[in-house]
């Protein structure tokens, strides 16, 4: 009986493995396929349907992008605006997240659910009403205006994730540090912040991506004075050959991939789970 159970478990595992393999391949096809298509198009002179192979290879599109001052400016805008948005978001949201993380359970849940509810309204309505305000304040078409719009989209990440991270730091780990002689500030720096760091890193990455990819609000508020990479994409898709869009997409994806790669090591550390029993 036991033997049969065992052999059944054994025989089922290759099936499971095969299914898993097929699933992974399908995932890879749908995720990597389009990326591959983009990557190839960024370097071909022309490649259209009946042809099995591209007509030829070229750097032409890349040089064209960097020669085009409008495109170049949108890249520069994105690379300036997004880091500013992330830093501002940290300055504004992290203290709130810390406070929420230290609230009692009910207070914290109310705060976070409230934020979530506010965030789940259709954005476009919010942007429209903000636009009226912007006209009054002369923020239309300004960098500040774009920054504020993008900031709104990062709040949910920069509060939710760090609040959970702060809340998950057991109080008695902080008390143990006080008991060991550390000042409140030192406890915050060496224990609380340090232990919440993986969560904060995730929030930074998510916020950066949210800001970097934000197009709706940025277009509404920034265009035609200020274009970022995603809003510039609109113009590109309409006015340029497909290869230019491909190059641009790769450029757009590059910071995200880089950031996730850098943060991965710290996030997957898994220190939060090990080493203490949560009371």
């Amino acid at each position: 009986m036991a033997k049969r159970e065992k052999s059944r478990a054994k025989s089922s595992s290759p099936v499971v493995k095969a299914l898993l393999g097929i699933f992974m391949l399908a995932m890879a096809f749908f995720i990597l396929g389009p990326l591959l298509w983009l990557a190839i198009h960024a370097f071909v002179t022309n490649w259209t349907y009946p042809n099995l192979y591209p007509d030829g290879w070229t750097w032409h599109w890349w040089t064209q992008i960097f020669a085009n001052s409008a495109l170049e400016e949108s890249i520069r805008n994105s690379l300036i605006i997004s880091p500013i948005v992330v830093v501002l978001s940290m300055i504004i949201c992290l203290p709130a997240a810390y406070a929420a993380g230290r609230m009692n359970y009910v207070g914290r849940k109310t705060f976070l659910i409230g934020l979530f509810a506010a965030n789940s309204f259709p954005k476009i309505g919010l942007f429209a009403s903000i636009a009226t305000l912007y006209y009054a304040l002369n923020l239309m078409g300004t960098i500040v205006g774009v920054i504020i719009i993008q900031l709104l989209g990062t709040i949910i990440y920069m509060t939710w994730i760090p609040a959970a991270a702060f809340a998950s730091v057991p109080r008695n780990l902080e008390e143990a540090a006080r008991d060991a002689g550390a000042s409140k500030f030192r406890v915050f720096r060496t224990i609380t912040l340090r232990m919440a760091m993986p969560g904060i890193l995730v929030a930074i990455v998510m916020s950066f991506l949210a800001s970097f990819d934000e197009a709706q609000g940025t277009y509404l508020v920034g265009a035609p004075a200020i274009y970022t990479m995603p809003t510039e994409m609109y113009a590109l898709v309409e006015n340029y050959p497909i290869q230019i869009a491909a190059v641009f997409s790769l450029l757009l994806a590059f910071p995200s991939v880089l950031l996730i790669g850098l943060a991965r090591k710290h996030i997957v550390g898994g220190q939060l789970a090990e080493g203490f029993q949560i009371k």
């Binding site: 780990l173 008390e175 008991d179 232990m195 090990e274 080493g275 203490f276």
Partner: peptide
């Protein structure tokens, strides 16, 4: 000048 040993030890995992 006191030092405490906590019930669940409260060691710093990092």
């Amino acid at each position: 000048p006191s030092a405490m040993v906590f019930q669940n030890y409260a060691l710093w995992p990092h």
